[in-house]
Amino acid sequence: MTPRLEEVTPRNFDTAVALRVRPDQEHAVSPVVRSLAEAYVHPAGVAWPRLIVDGARTTGFLMAFFDIDWHGDGSVRRSGLWRLNIAAGEQGRGYGRFAVDAVAAEIRRRGGTRMYVSWHPGPHGPEEFYLRLGFRKNGETSGDQTVGVLDLS
């Protein structure tokens, strides 16, 4: 496995929006097209959408966020993983871990020391995945999602 990240471009846009997670996971993560629309409406540099590619195969999609105003009042700024969609047939092959590591490296490169993520709790959700990677619940929620944090120092 030699995955890499690629920017979403006109050349790979159709591949990006065609990516699907398993049907039992669709309630837990927005489709790629919604993520790309959200990236478009946020100021430049906040959203970081990327495809996860291995050889000629697109195996997933991630979108990170950098230095956002978490509470909307300027009191807390955070960076982290906003979305992670691993294609249904590609799960369990290390692409999710690769994505988390890639976002962590980018946050460190930008001077950050913590990485945040949120997830829908419940069956077929990603909670155990994030906890295995070292995220810890911080007692917060974002809407109906659990918030986790990973120390990068």
Rank of each mutant, 00 (worst) to 15 (best):
F135A: 06
A88P: 00
N85M: 13
E127P: 01
K137C: 12
L152R: 05
R93C: 12
G92V: 14
A44L: 14
S118D: 14
V21Y: 00
P49Q: 01
F65M: 14
G96T: 08
L62C: 08
A47G: 12
R20A: 12
H124K: 09
V53A: 10
I68N: 10
P23T: 05
F135Y: 09
W82T: 03
A56I: 11
L36R: 05
E128W: 05
Y116W: 14
V53G: 01
A64F: 07
T141K: 13
T9Q: 11
A56R: 07
A88L: 01
M63Q: 15
S79L: 01
L5F: 01
P31I: 07
V17K: 04
V29N: 06
G134D: 11
T59N: 14
T113E: 11
V76I: 11
L19P: 02
W70Q: 13
G148T: 10
T9N: 08
I107N: 03
T113H: 12
T58Q: 09
G139R: 00
G139T: 03
Q91P: 04
E127Q: 14
W48T: 08
Y130R: 04
M115P: 05
E127N: 01
L84Q: 00
A39R: 09
P31W: 03
G92L: 10
Y95Q: 04
A64C: 08
R136N: 03
L131I: 09
H42I: 09
D54I: 05
A16C: 06
G45T: 06
A37G: 13
V100C: 01
N12E: 05
I107L: 03
D73M: 05
R22Y: 02
S35P: 09
L19C: 02
L81N: 03
R136I: 13
D67V: 08
M1T: 09
V117Q: 00
G60I: 06
V33T: 10
A39T: 07
P123C: 00
A16G: 08
I68Y: 03
W82F: 15
Y130Q: 01
W48C: 05
V8C: 05
A18G: 15
G112S: 06
N12W: 03
T141L: 10
E90Q: 08
V100A: 04
L62M: 13
R109Y: 03
F65R: 13
P23R: 11
G89S: 08
A105Q: 10
T113N: 09
G112M: 04
D144V: 00
F98N: 02
S118V: 00
G60N: 07
H27N: 13
A16K: 09
R34W: 15
V21E: 07
K137V: 13
L133E: 03
P31Q: 11
R78K: 12
D144P: 07
R83M: 11
R132H: 14
H120R: 14
A28D: 00
V33E: 12
G80W: 07
T58S: 14
F135R: 01
E106V: 02
P31E: 10
